[in-house]
């Protein structure tokens, strides 16, 4: 009986500690974002600076969309959004297809050189972009690809790390799965497309998120290969605001909000699948 009592008391203390900690953490994690949004709604630059030292900075009043229209007036913002969405979605979609296809081939077939191929992919799984940027620039320049969409898409479709994630997932499928289908006369591509992919939603979502985030924030490469606004994506466009003094923080925050909002929405939508994939990919 006393043990029972102390356990109950503990959980109550536990709970209140949990809640206090959660609130403190929420402040730490969310205040930069709340701040970003509320500042973006404040049309008065001087007022933004005045409010910075106080709690008032978090309350957007008087709220106006002036900064947002300023962003559109100062630059071809629509164009940048279009560029970013086009480049990122094509890269991610093509990436999901080719990376999962190769992983499927590696995981479900026995053929000459398979072991070697898997070890190459795995050993060179992480090649950071910055280390190959210069040779890649020289090469794409030779192709005459500079200042285009495809120079920002094609080199980033295939990725050994994503192949590895898919590979780990596909290799855990039971053999019986495709044997039954093969007896039914289904082709390999059909098995991949009709059976493997529909079972892979969690891993597809998870790779899509990783790939999307990487491409959406990609800065160095677009800066190197684009000259004018025609093919520029959002992260490079943001630089415009930092080149001029005094910096217009309202505009910067409006830009940052518009660049972050779509990702956050996508995230909330895919989050469930993402968490599921964590416990399914074998990296437990």
């Amino acid at each position: 009986m006393p043990a029972e009592k102390s356990r109950k008391k503990l959980t109550l203390i536990d709970k209140s500690i949990s809640y206090t900690l959660m609130i403190l953490l929420a402040i730490f994690f969310l205040f930069p974002l709340i701040y970003m949004i509320s500042t973006s709604l404040n049309p008065d630059e001087l007022d933004i600076l005045k409010r910075m030292g106080s709690i008032k900075a978090f309350i957007p009043s008087p709220a106006s969309l002036k900064n947002y229209s300023d962003v559109f007036a100062r630059m071809p913002f629509g164009r940048f959004i279009f560029n970013s969405v086009l480049i990122v979605s094509l890269t991610v979609l093509a990436g999901l297809l080719v990376n999962s296809m190769m992983a499927f081939g590696l995981a479900r077939f026995t053929f000459k050189g398979r072991g070697l191929l898997v070890s190459i992919i795995v050993a060179l799984m992480i090649i950071p972009f910055e280390t190959i940027a210069v040779p890649l620039l020289l090469m794409t320049n030779k192709f005459g690809w500079l200042d285009s969409y495809h120079v920002q898409i094609i080199p980033f479709i295939a990725n050994p790390f994503y192949i590895f994630l898919f590979y780990q997932f596909f290799i855990s499928f039971p053999k019986a799965l495709e044997e039954a289908a093969l007896i039914d006369g289904a082709s390999w591509f059909k098995i991949y497309w009709k059976i493997a992919l529909p079972l892979s939603k969690p891993i597809l979502a998870s790779v899509a998120i990783l790939h999307f985030l990487m491409q959406w924030g990609f800065f160095l490469w677009p800066l190197m290969v684009t000259r004018g606004p025609e093919y520029r994506p959002l992260p490079v466009a943001m630089q415009v605001f930092f080149g001029q003094y005094p910096r217009d923080w309202g505009d910067i925050m409006a830009f940052a909000t518009m660049m972050t909002a779509p990702v956050l929405i996508l995230f909330v939508v895919l989050q469930g699948q993402y968490v599921k994939s964590v416990s399914q990919t074998g990296i437990k």
Partner: peptide, 14 residues
């Protein structure tokens, strides 16, 4: 879901 938000913010914006 809220705590996950900073992960979705690109490094330059962070």
């Amino acid at each position: 879901t809220f705590l996950f938000a900073p992960y979705a913010v690109s490094p330059a914006i962070a």
